[in-house]
């Protein structure tokens, strides 16, 4: 049952949204294996189903058909309290719009995730402080999100995602709201977390910069996997894809 190599298995997943009589096929029998410790980028144009796929991997949404396994466990077999545990301890979420709690300081935003994991508020604040230092925000602990830059907000969000030592980071367009340079810093930081802690990273992006950090790139189009490329192959692919998107 337990698959040591693949931390996430997506099996024949389809998702259909119904809007009245209209049906939107957001995903069409997607099958992807994600290896432990890999940095996987999901690339695809707007509306191709990236976010839908992320929501399903994170257990935020259920597929219309097909199955998702995390650490060998079928997500649909978990009770809601077990699913909450998996989201808390196994998965770190990073969002395009940062999603920090505006009324909480940087420290509190990170500590709350630790509190959910069952640590005392005092311990949670200590761990949060250390994690914020690790992402280079040791000097902004008591600032509110509105008092720091977008890049710094995303760093707080990264610290929040890391504080419970997850084995997976799910980041849906983490650089979508950042300028080029800041986006690059964030990507490097996420890449560092993979190298240091062996965390499996899955990001969705339209952003070609993401490719250099990736071990695997999965292109999806109209809800279906178009192709998959591993590291060495990516450089060759970039040219063609670049050509395609620029045209």
């Amino acid at each position: 049952m337990k698959d040591q190599k693949n931390i996430i298995q997506i099996r024949d997943v389809s998702k259909v949204y119904r809007r009245g009589v209209e049906e939107v096929h957001a995903l069409r029998s997607v099958t992807i294996d994600i290896e432990r410790g890999n940095y996987v980028s999901i690339m695809g144009p707007s509306g191709s189903g990236k976010s839908t796929l992320f929501n399903i991997i994170g257990g935020l949404d259920s597929p219309s058909s097909g199955e998702v396994f995390i650490d060998g466990f079928r997500l649909s077999d978990l009770s809601s309290r077990q699913l909450a545990w998996v989201r808390c301890r196994r998965i770190g979420f990073i969002f395009q719009s940062f999603n920090l709690i505006p009324s909480m300081t940087a420290l509190e935003n990170v500590a709350i995730a630790r509190i959910f994991a069952g640590f005392s508020p005092a311990q949670a604040r200590r761990d949060a402080g250390q994690t914020l230092e690790r992402v280079g925000l040791g000097h902004r602990l008591h600032h509110l999100p509105s008092q720091v830059s977008g890049g710094q907000q995303q760093r707080i969000a990264i610290a929040r995602a890391l504080v419970n030592q997850p084995s997976i980071i799910l980041a849906d367009e983490p650089t979508g709201n950042l300028d080029l340079h800041t986006g690059e810093e964030i990507i490097n930081l996420i890449g560092e977390m993979k190298a240091k802690f062996g965390i499996t990273i899955i990001t969705a992006t339209h952003d070609m910069k993401m490719l250099s950090a990736s071990d695997v790139v999965v292109w999806i189009k109209d809800g279906a996997v178009e192709k998959t490329a591993r590291k060495g192959e990516i450089n060759i692919e970039v040219g063609t894809i670049d050509g395609k998107t620029l045209a």
Partner: peptide, 19 residues
Amino acid sequence: MEPTQPSAIHEIPNQYSIP
């Protein structure tokens, strides 16, 4: 309270309830 490595589905704990 390090994350455990569950090997069967019933070993996945229920999420902790905040007092």
